[in-house]
């Protein structure tokens, strides 16, 4: 099974249900798409992530009602440095979609989606703890894995694997 090259053309992918509903709503909020290895990724503008999640959750025919995961990737030293990644699952249609928000290293702030899915609570706290991304509107944004007085964010690429000595 050879790998097919990823498709990044918006026109070719607009029949995908998640993308179609997002395009109907606000084409300006979509910064890019990628269909690779049977997985759909949509890059959303950071100001619109909460509305996009609400829209996908409440879609009438094609609801992505389940939040699987929130995580982050640090692309240090390139900019925008951080990618916050949301994995959504549609229980009824057995379909997944990945939303991404790109954040630059100087102000890694994004709106929290705990109001859309309470499940995001621990996931966002983990990303805050290990990457130092701030989620505005989060009800209890404190370290979850590391001790409260820990210095630095371990999963950032400029944090040494053995820790600071």
């Amino acid at each position: 099974m050879a790998l097919a090259p990823p498709i990044t053309d918006l026109e070719k992918l607009k029949t995908h249900p998640a993308l179609a509903s997002l395009l109907d709503w606000n084409p300006g909020a979509i910064e890019g798409v990628k269909f690779d290895r049977d997985e759909m990724s949509i890059v959303i503008d950071r100001a619109h992530i909460r509305d996009a999640c609400t829209l996908l959750r409440d879609h009438r025919e094609f609801a992505f009602e389940f939040l699987s995961d929130v995580t982050c990737v640090d692309w240090y030293p390139s900019e925008p440095r951080f990618e916050v990644i949301y994995h959504l699952l549609s229980i009824s249609k057995k379909e997944r979609v990945r939303l991404k928000v790109r954040l630059d290293g100087s102000s890694p702030v994004v709106e929290s989606i705990t109001a859309v899915w309470p499940a995001a609570n621990y996931f966002e706290r983990e990303v805050f703890d290990l990457f130092g991304i701030r989620f505005s509107g989060h009800p209890y944004l404190r370290r979850i894995m590391m001790p409260e007085d820990w210095n630095g964010n371990p999963l950032r690429k400029d944090y040494p694997v053995e820790g600071y000595r």
């Binding site: 690779d36 290895r37 699987s68 995961d69």
Partner: peptide, 8 residues
Amino acid sequence: PAGEVYQA
């Protein structure tokens, strides 16, 4: 090869 995958 470069890319990303979510496997559950």
